[in-house]
Design a protein around this nucleic acid. Structure first.
Length: 283
DNA sequence: GTACAGGCAGTAT
DNA sequence: ATACTGCCTGTA
């Protein structure tokens, strides 16, 4: 099996805060700035402050990718997609940043999400100098909770500002403890997330999959919904409409989790990347 | 001008 | 249990 390609993974729409400067990629990962430089085709990783072998953590190189592929290739389409995009991997995000990222993602598009998050880092994050350039860390929940709704709105968050502030307060007060969700199973972790106002099915599943080790989570956004209509109509009892009601979301996500098994979320990433590629989406 | 873009909560039916 | 609605902002 071919090795992963970090550049494809960071450009696959799962991780928003990356930018290319002087032939290197720089990303905001919580309180750190991470860097990827490709030298003669082989990647070199550094982080500031140092964070030993961060690539292993972020690109999930600690996963047993052979076992994952063995499981996923039972599905013929995902099998072809794994061969078609050999460099693509699921990434592991920092939980708070991940949650705020997907809170920004409602009813908008990737360039806009990137702008919102970029503005948040510049207004509320801490500056850090790397390679003589200035970058900004991602603000903590405590910092976001202390910002006024107007400040948040001025980051182009729009109506999302209110929910984002409220979720940040929940975290700052300890009502919501993301780290504790790592240790419990998918269903229980999800039901805890759903109790927080502002977090619905889709955001909960994204946070669980991308940052809390729930590889069996299967988030369904409009793109995945399109992919399922195109390729898995045989698994659906009726055609998918424009929007899924919470209950429809739940039963569909559950069905796909059963179909793909314990690494369903990994399969979701290939479906997502493929349908966006075919739609000609760069971001 | 207006439709639409990686949702969610509140309210009405 | 489902349907409808409003919500910021920017681009096509």
């Amino acid at each position: 099996m071919q090795s992963f390609d970090p550049v494809i993974s960071i450009n696959s729409g799962q991780f928003f805060l990356w930018e290319k400067r002087n032939e290197s990629w720089y990303g905001t990962y919580g309180s750190r700035i991470i860097k990827l430089k490709t030298i003669d085709g082989s990647p070199e990783f550094t982080s500031f402050p140092e964070f030993k072998t961060f690539e292993k953590k972020i690109f999930r190189l600690d996963d047993d990718i052979k076992a994952i592929f063995a499981e996923l290739t039972r599905d013929p389409l995902v099998h072809t997609l794994i061969k078609k995009y050999p460099g693509l991997r699921l990434m592991r995000q920092e939980p708070e940043q991940c949650l705020f990222s997907f809170l920004c993602a409602s009813n908008t598009n990737i360039p806009m999400i990137r702008r919102m998050l970029y503005n948040l880092t510049r207004r509320l994050g801490a500056p850090m100098s790397v390679d003589g350039m200035e970058f900004f860390t991602f603000p903590t929940a405590a910092e976001i909770s202390k910002a006024t709704t107007e400040q948040l709105r001025s980051c182009s968050l729009g109506y999302r500002a209110k929910a984002i502030k409220e979720v940040a307060q929940n975290i700052a007060e300890g009502t919501l403890n993301l780290e504790s969700l790592r240790r419990i199973e998918y269903r229980e972790a999800k039901s805890q997330l759903l109790q927080v106002r502002g977090i619905g099915n889709k955001i909960a599943d994204c946070v669980l999959l991308f940052s809390l080790e729930k590889l069996d989570a299967f988030p369904i956004d409009v793109w995945i919904s399109r992919a399922l209509s195109q390729h898995y109509s045989w698994l659906l009892d009726r055609p998918l409409g424009n929007a899924l009601t919470p209950r429809q979301y739940d039963s569909l996500s559950e069905r796909m989790r059963l179909h793909f098994g314990r690494y369903a979320g990994y399969a979701q990433q290939y479906l997502y990347y493929d349908i966006r590629q075919r739609a000609g989406k760069k971001w």
